[in-house]
Design a protein around this nucleic acid. Sequence first.
DNA 1: ATTAGGG
DNA 2: CCCTAAT
Length: 669
Amino acid sequence: MVVKRKLNCGSNGFDFPNIPKAPRSSRRKVSSKIADDDGDDSQICAIDLLASLAGKLLEESESSSSTNAFEGDNHHHLGGVIKKEHEDDYNKTIKSEFSDLGNPASKSTSENTSETCLQFSSLENDSILEKTPISDCGKARGLKPLVGCENKKGNSDLLVESVVTTEETGVVNVDAGFVKGEATNGLDDGGLVADTFSLKDPSQVQLQSPESVYLDGDVKLPSGAYRVPNGSFEGYGNKSKLVRRDDDENYCKYYKFNDKCKSYRPLARVGNRRMKKSMAKYGRAVPRSKCFEDTRTDALKALYRKRKLYYGYNSWKHESVHKKRRLSDKGLVVNSDGGLSSESVSNSPEKGESENVVFSAAVGLRSKDSRVKFSIKSFRIPELFIEVPETATVGSLKRTVREAVTALLGGGIRIGVLVQGKKVRDDNNTLSQTGLSCRENLGNLGFTLEPGTEKLPVPLCSENPAVAVPTDSTNLSERSAASPVLDSIIPCPLQDADHLINSGNSVENNHELVPYQSEISTDEQPSSDSRALVPVSALEPEALAIVPISEKPKRTELSQRRTRRPFSVTEVEALVQAVEEIGTGRWRDVKLRSFENASHRTYVDLKDKWKTLVHTASISPQQRRGEPVPQDLLDRVLGAHRYWSQNQMKQNVKPQAAATVVVKSGSSM
DNA sequence: ATTAGGG
DNA sequence: CCCTAAT
């Protein structure tokens, strides 16, 4: 018996990713601002459901274990959540553990990193959370029974069950369960799957939604209805919709109560539309908030100390240097690693086909049209690190979790395909070429759900056999994260001729995307992997309410730094020419005049380039880097710069004269 | 949407 | 090249 929370939401369309975008200008301060955005149910996304569940569980844990639970008014029990058999253990556990809470000495339990689950440092004696059972990692175990899962390996994760079919009806059912467990050892295939399975029994899970759902175009959720026309996985996701069942109203209401919490919206999603528009019209990506991913190691460290978070963003000047992402010091840290690790997803032959896959394919079938059919039993959400001050309330924790998860999916997710436990990266191969035919045993097919970006600039989807297909599973530990980008779900409609040129860059970019990969692999240790949620205490007193959930998913989802495209001498020439005539300060016009057709050059780019040109011209040739710009051009830059600087006030005056003057000065030098 | 300037 | 602020 498991948690039986119905997560389906109304049938009125799920509006999954429809999260309001905040004006770019207000992004920073948003945390609180966003609060006012209506947090309507319609915007609750699937993940919210998960978070909800998680929240419920936490709640349950609280109420079950102590009367001291917070938000006692918020008792939305999951009814019959706890299975008899577990109840005793559960209570016992909770009791003993809870009693431990009274013992100051036991407070240090939170330092036990090997413990997965929720961890709250007991830095403050009377921290609110500390008063609840869940404040201690060990206590979190109590959650296990709640979910009714047998955690063999003690993995604690957020699990989402779903069923996907490729049939025309393509239905996507999303069920969710929050599994909590203690991890006593490294992740291993068995554990997770076991959990998954314990949740998946259809008869036990009432979350399945019969309706198929449409995901907002924004999100490439691997929902059903993905026809696989040519055996290619590309171009899917156009028509699925997530439907919310009415009976989930409770759920919705639940969150309604927390309107004030809507505060931090996954900024990750902010700007998507604009981005697209911008990209299309100006060829410039819309600003995105930086998204830094903590290495898991960092995350761990974070568990024990409040740290100052700092951004280590990549400056275009020193790109590739910083690979880590830090979060703001507001208290919340949400991280997601590259996605499901291969290990956790891969099949283990001995165990049987369906046993060890998070996403498992079930069966080929009579194919008259050679269509492959499979069902996805469940999938696990990557990894989420959440850091909140211990003074935060449980309620805020819940919201945080919810937001975190929402943010995670906010920008879409990527799907990785695993065959025989190996990640298949070549999106262009057909299924049959990949060894997946209706006649084959699909038990070897698996999928991974990874944080994704819908618009990775450089979709390798095009071609790149070389890069792809590194099915060197030998190294599963290397984690699929290693190349999430490669599995980009982007249709990759790059219109520019960048492809060729950028393929190289793309690789670089991809790396940027998967910053802490290697580090991740190291920490598959017990503690890290097994916990899906790791609330960390931060001393921040006030905190949580405004926790900026912002940074998290961006990296992957929202934005990708545009690929670098050094200006060619020709472009520089054109720019100089234009500036000489138009002057600085009218970049729009410059753009129009000389770069009308260069969609990738925005006026901002031009302005920036000019800035650098001026700088370049000002320094000694030895200090210059990159493709050398002819000195004469630099001279003209200086001349024009000088000229227009002097004439700031009267820029509209006699452009011609200006040009003339500039030319003179330039040549005379 | 642009512009200006800091990072 | 990104991000913000201010227009």
